[in-house]
Design a protein around this nucleic acid. Structure first.
Lengths: 337, 337
DNA sequence: CCCCCTTTTGGGATCGTTCCCAAATCTATT
DNA sequence: AATAGATTTGGGAACGATCCCAAAAGGGGG
């Protein structure tokens, strides 16, 4: 099927070395030979095989990206940022989408090694000892995203300051006069979202001498859907004898689900109950009332992580831990009381 | 850096042939040799290079996906579906994200050929004669998504019936008593969204003897954002002496932008004006009022297209044109008058 | 113990490039 | 016209796997 450099050489009446030189724009080729080769390449539509090249040079221009799913704004934004930086620098992007099967992560790591990718961008949810072993043996530059692994691994990571962000937004509620603040979260198996943000919530309350009440606290499973937020909210409404005045959901999506529940049960946001989230998805500014939340710039995160990876590949030293900044986006879902 | 099969062979005291046999679970290896090799592989963390393998076998297990952007639900859903099918069948996914630079498409086609991918899934916006030339010379199985190319190329395509969908949803408005129906669209350079959906709108009106009024008609550029929908709506409000009773936006996002504009200008949806879109993004069911729209199942589209591509690679005949079905999702944004 | 048949093993060509090095050609100077 | 030097050209090894084929080892039966 595919033409080879040898056949081009024969057609052009030169050696394969000369063809190679023409293709790679090397010197030491007569104008005549160059012209002839270019003609043949043009006519035949020959495109050299990067497989052979990669084998010879013992390196690829491919970066592997491991993530739990692509159809969510957090990840697709980040990938957009990665695309930009990687392609600008002549790299390609091999997408390893685990589709939420955590066991697949290890398999994908092996796959990427087999492919001899130049580097890996790894969105980690949870780093097990098995992960550690595999990652240590890997011998390929890796950047970890979304999870602080500095105590476990030598690998550089790019993270959100989830603890501080959660604390800040809860403090924002407190500054607006709220004292009865409910929590809607997810499993603590996800350390960034499930643990750190919960800790931030608890800390903010504690520092303001507010009680963490059990009937204001809902922790779902590994479910980040609006449904789960809806669930959590109706549970809190059902369980609490006195309604909270505000709700902190660890995710915008959960917050939006909670708002839907409130609306359906006849409560007005923010007049009856204030709601905040974290994440600033596109939806958040389009719903009514617009959601007050924390914005992480995932595009920038993707760009930064890619840049770090390229540095790492180039053999440079790299910041071990990059904490992305965030900002509170004040919109309409919080009322002063 | 990377260990080779030769080194493993030496460490295990066997020949590379034997190592190869063990790795590929071939027969004709003594239990003893097998055990020894497995030990060495385990201890050293050796992973064979798929580059060398691919070169020898003259084929890869990689599929290239070309798309204009990943951070939008249409594409990320489709890629999710592709991931599923491709990985289940032992293929990998190389992501070629043009980031809306249409000129890059041709370059990516070349890149994928260089990489000797086994097949290509190509989200086309516009097929130029240059595209045709390149695609014809490519000699790699390709499935075109989102654009009917049967008159231009021999390639199988998977498309949405945009004309019929637009016609249906406009007819839905007409069936609800609407006669003054505005249009918010995009440039006709995008044939599926800009042309076909517009045609569907016009045909529906024509068949019901309704006039297409210029002051009810807004056609933006290559901009699919909510802002553009907002723009279009305010333009229509400003230009028309008598307001329309309903608005058809060619995209949910545009529809949501239009709704935002209406809300801000004090109009209630659907009491004052009804709004419909096409696409059913996640937002559409989360905003208030929930948007009545057309649902395309992009995940399924991705699955189907991947399946077709694999058939094509396997040398089977494949449906030249697959039209995905859709359904009207009736929600809250339309009122009977 | 030898011969034949089966099973296991290893050597070497091969895939399509790159790149080193030596050979061939060209250019200019005497 | 001969020679040194510069430029252009081609041959072949190498990259790391697969796989064919021939050689070696093992196993029974006579």
């Amino acid at each position: 099927m595919g033409l080879t450099i040898k056949e081009i050489a024969k057609l052009a009446g030169v050696s394969k070395s000369t063809v190679s030189r023409v293709i790679n724009n090397s010197e030491h080729v007569s104008d005549e030979a160059r012209k002839k080769v270019k003609e043949v390449v043009e006519k035949t539509g020959y495109v050299p095989s990067s497989i052979a090249k990669d084998l010879k040079n013992n390196q690829t221009d491919t970066i592997g990206v491991i993530l739990p799913r692509i159809n969510t704004s957090t990840f697709s934004e980040a990938v957009e940022g990665m695309s930009k930086v990687l392609y600008q620098n002549g790299y390609n992007l091999l997408l390893a989408n685990t589709r939420l099967n955590k066991e697949d992560e290890l398999e994908y790591l092996r796959l990427l090694k087999r492919k001899r990718v130049s580097g890996i961008l790894f969105f980690a949810t949870e780093i097990t000892t098995q992960h550690q072993e595999v990652l240590e043996k890997l011998n390929i530059p890796v950047i970890i995203l979304g999870q602080d692994v500095s105590n476990l691994l030598e690998l550089p990571s790019v993270i959100q300051d989830d603890f501080q962000a959660a604390k800040d937004i809860v403090n924002y509620l407190i500054a607006h006069g709220h004292k009865r603040i409910a929590y809607i979260g997810v499993t603590e198996d996800d350390v960034a979202v499930g643990q750190l943000r919960k800790n931030g919530y608890q800390r903010a309350l504690a520092e303001n001498n507010l009680e963490v009440k059990a009937d204001y606290f809902y922790q779902g499973g590994f479910d980040f859907s609006t449904d789960s937020g809806y669930q959590g909210m109706s549970r809190i409404i059902a369980d609490s004898e006195r309604l909270p005045t505000a709700v902190f959901a660890v995710t915008d999506r959960l917050a939006i689900g909670a708002m839907k529940c409130l609306r359906e049960q006849g409560y007005r946001v923010p007049d009856d109950i204030s709601v905040v989230g974290i994440g600033d998805t596109e939806m958040s500014s389009l719903i009514t009332p617009e959601l007050t939340t924390i914005r992480y710039d995932q595009f920038k995160t993707g760009e930064l992580a890619s840049g770090l990876l390229l540095d790492l590949i180039a053999g440079q030293d790299v910041t071990v831990k990059s904490v992305m900044d965030y900002s509170i986006i004040e919109r309409e879902s919080v009322k002063k009381i």
